[in-house]
Design a protein around this nucleic acid. Structure first.
Lengths: 206, 206, 206, 206
DNA sequence: AATGAATGAGACTTCATTCAT
DNA sequence: AATGAATGAAGTCTCATTCAT
């Protein structure tokens, strides 16, 4: 794994520092006011040097978004095996998703409000067949099917259900981010109720 | 109707042009990169003149947001009566909301992604007691209660359910907007399935 | 005196209003931030109309300074006959000068700091022979001479004394303006002491 | 002496150039119309680069004022000893002050016309207790008291006298600066008469 | 690898002024 | 006599980026 030279490791460290600084600014002042100068100031280097590690500002922002999205999906992935009970799995997944997203609010909003092909290419999940292309949808679908073992859902319905659950969860998350003033207790109640109750109801058919 | 002088009409036209230009920029490059200069360039005037019609940039942005929000709520309000069956009412409301929002996609995104107090003051609905302060939440709550006539839900649970439904609907809507490339048939399926099936499931407890 | 038509009287009134507004702005925000727009706003007219009464901003500022200087010298002139006692007359003149100047602080500073010929043409008084060309110096000189009836001062010395007194008084005034935070009691003491004691000492030779 | 690297020296040179340009503008058009753009134009650079050397415009103006004030007070301090005769000391001090001030006319005017707290914080001397806080006032007071050895002045009166003398001297100086056209002979007479005669009269009580 | 100097574009805003009505 | 629309210049400041060292 560590076939990197010291130089390469140093460079990677620097890149990470830059991205970390950018992320910090994004969280404090908003994604839109990330600036090379502010990053430079935060890492205590000159603006110029940043161009040694990134071609331009855009590249930084892109990687920021990507890493944000990545963190989300990986954290989601890691939460899957916890339990065999599909209902419980669905609960945990939902909660994990919301909580992880709340850690990178700005990136989350950007990623999910942006409708440029460049972004939706990675983030879209409403298209037909998404349960095969999108890991998250796939995982939800699996939960749903495991919850109704003997019955047979129509394939399409299960996918639509999974997609609805994903979109709904995203909606709750976005709203929680937008309403950042919400009292902590209420915030907790919303998260609990949505992931423990609502999601399960959505996943079931009578 | 026309108690305005020509002057006033011209002035109103100019204001509208400015707002239209701003809206267009917002759609093309994002809300955050609206600038007085760009607006001026689009309407083929000097930046200065804009200050003849608006006190400052903020006023423009505010009016932009307001007009977006206004269109939505009025369209929602007008859809409320229709039928006595609460389940059917919930279905229609959801569908109406989604369809109306899709008619003003840009404004919708702006209004629901913005977390500045100025905006959330009007758009927040996750707070405790929202079912009394927010007409939409109230209407959803009423549907839920009418669907379970003899039983008594705990008040708080009903509100949380209504809030979840609202947030979920918003999430689906936003996702539909972001995925503007979605095939028409699939788009229709998502809307149908979500408003006809999912929302009803969310509103029911076993 | 009133050979003015109504139109002319109205016009004069407007001019006065404009100058009054300008003066007010000068006192509140400083001479340097007088602007046509602010004046217009204050008199509740459009900026444009101001150009009906004044050729441009400069003309307004000029008249403002002139009127300020005028008020000062006329107020000074009017204070001369109060008493026959030359010592008392000098005291009153000094005090009057300071107090009147403090009513138009900005204009006073401008007028007396400006070294452009256009201004010094009116305000200079250190030149040889000033006691004949400048009313104020003349008046001070008269006081001094009346205070030493039988003796004969050398003409030149009296003028130099008068000039020194005038410059000194101006210095005290300027300093009082610059130190606008001075406590009221202390301000009063300075004025009292300077006009009652110091000026008289300056005017006397042993 | 030269512990500065070439870089640092260059930077200092640039700073000095900027300040010099600002000073020049101040002399030509007045302190109030110093602008970043004008400075940039004078030094033949872009406005932006100025922010490389100064945080903002205010910092430039501040340093301008400070350097002016500094030059004066240091020159005054160095003139204090000379003789034991208090009357003679007062004469020399006054003359020195005037002559030094005339060497830096622009800065002198700026410093003594500005009434912003930032400046008066250093330059005010009319406040009660100034003879303890301000070296110049203290030195004048000492002269006065030494001139009346056995008698006892009321403390307060001595301070007021010293303050009056300082303000008067400042007034004469300002006037000499404003009347820059004054003939050399007359200028000399004014300075001589004021510092040799008037100041001494002011310092004495009968 | 890193710096500091420099630019040019652009941000918002205020202003004096002109002109048609 | 008065207005409102419009301009163009100027104001301060921030930014991304390049380049010589």
């Amino acid at each position: 794994m560590s076939t990197l030279t010291r130089r390469e490791r140093d460079a990677q460290k620097m890149k990470d520092d830059i991205l970390a600084a950018a992320r910090e600014i994004s969280n404090q002042e908003g994604f839109g006011s990330i600036s090379i100068r502010k990053i430079a100031h935060k890492i205590e280097y000159t603006p110029s040097i940043i161009y040694h590690y990134f071609a331009n500002k855009e590249e930084i922002l892109e990687q920021l978004l990507q890493s944000g999205y990545l963190k989300l999906t990986t954290s989601l992935a890691s939460s899957k095996m916890i339990t065999d009970d599909p209902e419980e799995r669905l609960r945990v997944m939902t909660r994990t998703y919301i909580e992880e997203a709340l850690k990178i609010p700005e990136e989350f909003v950007i990623v999910h409000s942006d409708s440029s092909p460049n972004v939706t290419k990675h983030t879209s999940f409403l298209f037909k067949g998404a349960s095969e292309k999108r890991k998250a949808i796939h995982m939800i679908k699996k939960c749903i099917m495991d919850m109704h073992p003997q019955e047979e859902w129509e394939e399409e319905m299960v996918e639509l259900t999974a997609q609805s659950i994903a979109a709904a969860t995203m909606g709750v998350t976005l709203k929680l981010i937008a309403e950042s003033n919400l009292e902590e207790a209420q915030r907790k109640k919303i998260i609990d109720y949505f992931s423990d109750e609502m999601v399960v109801r959505m996943a079931k058919h009578e």
